Amino acid sequence: MEIIAYGVLTDERPLLEFAFAKEFGDRHTLRCLELFLTPDTLPTAAGREVVLTGANDQLDADVLRALAAGGTRLVAQRSTGHNNIDLDAARAAGLTVARVSHYSPHSVAEFAWALALAVNRGVVRAANRSREFDFRLDGLLGRDLHGCVAGIFGTGKIGAAFAHIAHGFGMRLLGCDVQENPACRDLGMTYVDADRLFAESDLVSLHAPLLPATHHVVDGAALALMRDDAILVNTSRGGLVDTDALVATLRAGRLAGVGLDVYEEEAGLFSFDRSQEVMTDDTLARLTTFHNVVVTSHQAYFTRQAVGAVGLAARAVEPSSRLRRARAPAWPGPTPAPPG
Results as ranks from 00 to 15, higher is better:
65 R>Y: 07
257 G>V: 10
84 N>T: 07
297 S>G: 10
121 R>V: 09
90 A>Q: 04
72 T>C: 11
130 S>G: 09
216 H>E: 14
340 G>N: 11
40 D>F: 03
120 N>M: 06
223 L>P: 02
283 T>Y: 12
193 D>S: 05
243 T>H: 04
288 T>E: 14
268 G>S: 08
303 T>G: 06
66 A>C: 10
34 E>H: 09
101 S>L: 14
105 P>R: 06
286 R>H: 10
210 L>E: 11
71 G>K: 03
67 L>E: 03
131 R>K: 15
214 T>I: 12
235 T>W: 03
92 A>C: 05
324 R>H: 08
327 R>P: 00
321 S>A: 15
289 T>L: 11
340 G>C: 10
268 G>L: 07
321 S>N: 05
332 P>N: 10
165 I>Q: 03
297 S>H: 12
160 A>H: 14
305 Q>E: 15
80 T>W: 07
228 D>N: 14
37 L>W: 05
67 L>K: 05
221 A>I: 03
108 V>C: 04
45 A>G: 03
214 T>W: 08
272 F>Y: 15
229 D>S: 13
215 H>R: 15
243 T>D: 02
98 A>N: 07
276 Q>E: 15
23 E>V: 00
270 F>W: 09
336 P>N: 11
113 W>I: 00
182 P>R: 07
306 A>S: 13
160 A>D: 09
256 A>K: 07
272 F>E: 15
291 H>D: 15
70 G>S: 07
66 A>T: 06
337 A>M: 08
103 Y>Q: 03
316 A>N: 05
129 R>Q: 15
47 G>D: 04
176 C>R: 00
298 H>Q: 06
17 E>W: 04
144 D>P: 07
330 A>H: 02
320 S>T: 11
277 E>A: 14
167 H>Q: 13
140 L>R: 13
24 F>Q: 00
110 E>P: 00
169 F>N: 02
64 L>P: 05
80 T>N: 13
8 V>K: 01
2 E>M: 11
289 T>F: 11
